[in-house]
């Protein structure tokens, strides 16, 4: 019985890991190619979710189509943010860069609330994934959670090889590693920076669309005030996961997502003092990661210089 319980908790944790992973991958992609620590990541994804909520409210648009539109809106929001704002700031102005990211995040959070016409409290959201539960080797979880795990895995299975092998993926990595050399080789660095923002922002929307419309299980989802703030409810763990790879390494960020989703969830089964302080343990882990300056394990000095100049 305990085995089944553990498996069940592990699967729920995996679904959470999947959401964190998609957020973390976007954070890493954007940071590597543009040097922006994207504190607006959650809010940009949120805009897509709000568009989804508005479209599904009238029962006219099929939920799956609405989700696709929401995803596209977030990707566009990321593109606009990069083109209008972030491309104008030099990478060495670190504090300005973070402040601007906070401003962009607040902007999109405010726009989201404006689109909802100031509805306060909790808003019921129609799900687009099938309801019900599935039995995975004796452990019963929601279908939406299983799909979240599969989507996250599929995203990584597509994205990692694409970055490694395809022409665009290689160009993206070239821009990340040495912007000037990439430009000399004829790569349009600005275009690839925008591509990174589009992919990252789309992934943020995907993560939030898998999370929020299915957060209440069978009934669908609830969009609450916890989600409508600039930094949202999962951005800090996502940054923690990305920090495992020093905001640079995608595979390490994925490993980090597993830790922050799965381990945190599994600790529920630990004795009470540990189970009660799961969140605090996560914060301690992030602080340790910050102090370790993890980026030096994943990038050469030249690459770190390139990120800062």
């Amino acid at each position: 019985m305990t085995g089944t319980l553990a498996a069940q908790v592990a699967l729920i944790g995996l679904a959470k890991s999947g959401v964190i992973a998609m957020l973390a991958v976007g954070i890493v992609l954007i940071y590597r190619t543009t040097g922006v620590v994207n504190l607006a990541h959650w809010a940009i994804g949120l805009v897509g979710v709000v568009v989804y909520v508005l479209l599904t409210g009238g029962d006219v648009v099929p939920p799956l189509l609405a989700a696709a539109v929401g995803l596209a809106v977030s990707a566009l929001a990321g593109l606009v943010a990069q083109r209008l704002v972030f491309s104008r700031i030099h990478r060495s102005q670190v504090v300005t860069m973070i402040l601007v990211a906070l401003g962009v995040g607040s902007f999109f959070a405010a726009v989201s609330q404006m689109l909802l016409r100031g509805q306060r409290g909790e808003i019921i959201v129609t799900p687009f994934l099938p309801g019900g539960t599935v039995d995975v080797a004796g452990a019963v979880i929601l279908t939406s959670e299983l799909i979240t795990i599969l989507v996250a895995m599929a995203t990584c299975a597509v994205l990692l090889p694409w970055l490694k092998r395809s022409r665009s993926g290689r160009a993206l990595r070239a821009v990340a590693q040495n912007r000037e050399a990439a430009q000399l080789a004829g790569i349009d660095a600005a275009r690839y920076a925008e591509l990174a923002w589009v992919i990252g922002s789309g992934l943020a929307a995907l993560a939030l669309l898998l999370l929020i419309p299915h957060s209440a299980g069978e009934q669908g989802g609830v969009l609450s005030v916890v989600h409508l703030v600039p930094l949202g409810s999962l951005l800090i763990p996502a940054f923690g996961a990305a920090l495992v790879g020093g905001l640079i390494s995608l595979p390490a960020a994925l490993a980090g997502s597993l830790i922050f989703g799965l381990v945190q969830e599994l600790l529920i089964l630990a004795p009470p003092p540990i189970a009660d302080e799961r969140e605090v343990l996560a914060f301690v882990a992030i602080t340790v990661l910050l102090l370790l300056r993890t980026e030096r394990f994943f990038a050469s000095n030249a690459e770190l210089e390139a990120l800062r100049s």
Partner: peptide, 12 residues
């Protein structure tokens, strides 16, 4: 919320 959005733009 409009003011919040405008303030964010002003901030940037």
């Amino acid at each position: 919320y409009f003011i919040a959005a405008v303030t964010a733009v002003a901030f940037v």
